[in-house]
């Protein structure tokens, strides 16, 4: 679903991302671990075409991100670290709006199914977003992704600031999506959550993936050890 080839982003002398080669297939959850400034968000911003790469290519569903940005966005859904929606609109209305401008016409019952699937409690459907917690807003974000029938989910620090229960629920939700065949790229600091849900894990530093693992092949403590070693290197 995602293929990047020597993807590089430079800001003057500073290299934010250096020759990244990624290949994430359907049904995979790839977790990017790393400290602040390691290049995780840069990767996601490049995939969204929010910034232009200095060199290299990124393909989503075999479509070049820089050449046909709008086309690629049809297949992906993105949940930023702090997902903000329209505060004066309700959950249903936000879902309707974001799906609508993306070209999806939904009936009310369809939308309710998506919100339910995303785990939002029934009584919050018609409440204004103003009163929502971050976890609840993220559920609406997932619903938007579901409604879009996204094949790829890009997540930037989705669990930061969530309480453990909400974080756990979110993890479960991602697993469900994985089963549906959605490819997921998630940038995170949360080693524990990453180990729990990821199929693949990459540890980033200075814009380069220093280590890459298949999640099943190592334990949480091994992962932590590798992570700290990479950081102290």
């Amino acid at each position: 679903m995602i293929v990047t080839t020597d993807l590089t982003k430079k800001y003057g002398d500073f290299t934010a991302l250096n020759n990244l080669n990624l290949n994430i297939k359907q049904g995979e959850i790839y977790c990017l671990l790393g400290a602040n400034g390691a290049g995780k968000s840069t990767t996601i911003n490049l995939l969204l075409n929010f910034i232009q790469p200095s060199s290299g290519t990124a393909l989503i569903n075999n479509i070049d991100v820089t050449k046909q940005p709008l086309e690629t966005k049809k297949y992906l859904a993105y949940i930023p670290e702090n997902l903000m929606l329209y505060p004066t609109l309700s959950a249903l209305e936000n879902l309707d709006y974001f799906s609508g401008i993306a070209g999806k016409v939904l009936t009310k019952s369809e939308m309710e199914v998506f919100l339910q699937e995303a785990g939002l409690q029934q009584d919050a459907f018609n409440k204004k977003i103003k009163a929502f917690s971050k976890g609840m807003r993220q559920k609406v974000g997932i619903a938007i992704a579901l409604a879009k029938d996204a094949k790829l989910l890009l997540l930037d620090e989705p669990t930061s600031g969530l309480d453990p229960k909400a974080s756990n629920e979110f993890g479960m939700l991602l697993k469900k999506l994985k089963q549906k065949g959605v490819a997921i790229l998630m940038a995170t600091h949360d080693i524990f959550r990453a180990k729990e849900i990821a199929t693949h894990i990459g540890i980033m530093r200075h814009g380069v993936i220093q280590h890459q693992f298949v999640a099943d092949q190592l334990s949480l403590s091994e992962l932590e050890k590798h992570y700290l070693e990479t950081m102290n290197y």
């Binding site: 709008l70 690629t72 966005k73 993105y78 505060p87 974001f98 401008i101 974000g141 938007i144």
Partner: peptide
């Protein structure tokens, strides 16, 4: 400033048209 733009920009619409 509110942060909704990122979500919007990830949709298949061009921002200036929007």
């Amino acid at each position: 400033e509110r942060g909704a733009l990122r979500l919007l920009a990830s949709q298949p619409v061009s921002i200036y048209k929007w």
